[in-house]
Design a protein around this nucleic acid. Structure first.
Lengths: 217, 217
DNA sequence: GCAACTATTGAACATCAGTCAATAAGCCTC
DNA sequence: GAGGCTTATTGACTGATGTTCAATAGTTGC
């Protein structure tokens, strides 16, 4: 067993699975799905191909599990930052964006694995991506106090579009760091405020939320 | 030759290639890349596997070519609608959005094939997608008169993010038609105006562009 | 030490992408 | 119409890759 650590002859189920998922994040970020063979993965993990199949029913399931892990991590990172009930909505938004961009900065490969477009259309991957967007939309609606009134298809779509805005700008920022993080965060938050305004929500929470901010100079 | 039309024994190179690309758009929209085998494609086309390889060096090249076709079609559809030099920027924007949403409505599968997330990360697909976004950003900058001054990284990023906004909202709208097309178009255009404002561009062109619109009621 | 459970293995198998020598279709010239 | 040339087309074959599974080995409890 060339790649196997001598003290890791046999691991517990949870430990091995977690180890494989971490490795999956790295490997799938560094090579295209097609060119990364099961042989190469098993070698990198220091295990047999058969063992990989003991843990994941197929290559695609292995990949899906890693994408799901990336999504959970992103969601959790931003959840922790926005759990306070004592702060005004805009402050919560700033915190959430800060945590989001922290994640982008520190876990760039994970983020890219989650959101970079690959070959073809796969229903399960789509489910993970769309589920992540849904979770962000729900959370935004709740944290910004839009959870109880004035909520409807247009609001959800506006929030969803904004999540897309954040994704695309974050990916661009990740690969070309041409503006500062603060400027990016402010662009994101002002765009959110604006798109909600465009969606014309007149409830008190949104009115408060839409208090003018100074523009980026 | 079970699937072969009797009058199609031998086609010209261009004709056959075009036929295969059209078929590719359908097939790749309907099934995941992995589950769609070369055998199935050849059968659907009424040709041999070898012939498929005569036209495309690999399965992946075949797929990439279909995605590129989808992108070109989208770009061309919106280009034609926005070629007039006599209209004000906001009118051009409305025309462009109208053409874009026409495309989404009429060629939903093509659009989804272009933008739906699939398995893994593939550099060539990424190049097509990002190239399409770049083309839209360039075109927007030019048509909105932002091509000569006040242009910079922040502007490009804002425009780029907005393209992401349009993509995500269009995909959602495609699968859940919960708001009218007019409302969607207005949300898109107001969000563009707002994000440009947030990017704080003060040139005369942008000031004109930022003339207040009435909100969506 | 033995039995039971299960993580682990690697050879075998199945499937699929890709190859290539041979054939057939279509066009042009005589 | 026949023959020659070009090249679209074929289908059997090959090799790589994903998947399977009987056998083995590690660990725990008695």
């Amino acid at each position: 067993m060339p790649g196997r650590a001598p003290n890791k002859r046999r691991l517990g189920v949870d430990e091995r699975r977690a180890e494989l998922l971490e490795l999956g994040l790295e490997l799938f970020a560094a090579a295209s799905y097609e060119t990364l063979s099961i042989d190469a993965i098993a070698r990198a993990a220091g295990i047999s191909k058969g063992l990989l199949y003991h843990y994941f029913p197929s290559k695609r399931d292995y990949y899906t599990a890693t994408v799901r892990l990336a999504a959970d991590r992103l969601l959790n990172a931003t959840l922790e930052a926005t759990e306070s009930d004592e702060l005004p909505p805009l402050e919560l938004l700033q915190r959430g964006l800060s945590a989001y961009l922290d994640f982008v900065e520190r876990h760039g490969q994970t983020y890219a694995t989650l959101l970079r477009t690959g070959i073809g259309t796969d229903p399960e991957i789509l489910t993970v991506i769309e589920g992540t967007r849904d979770a962000f939309v729900d959370r935004l609606a709740e944290r910004l106090g839009l959870g109880h009134e004035g909520q409807g298809p247009l609001l959800r779509l506006a929030l969803r579009g904004w999540v897309g805005f954040v994704e695309v700008t974050s990916l661009s920022w990740l690969s070309e760091n041409t503006i500062s993080r603060e400027v990016l965060a402010e662009l994101m938050s002002e765009t959110l405020v604006a798109t909600l305004s465009a969606a014309s929500l007149k409830s008190p929470q949104v009115t408060d939320l839409l208090t003018p901010d100074s523009s980026i100079e």
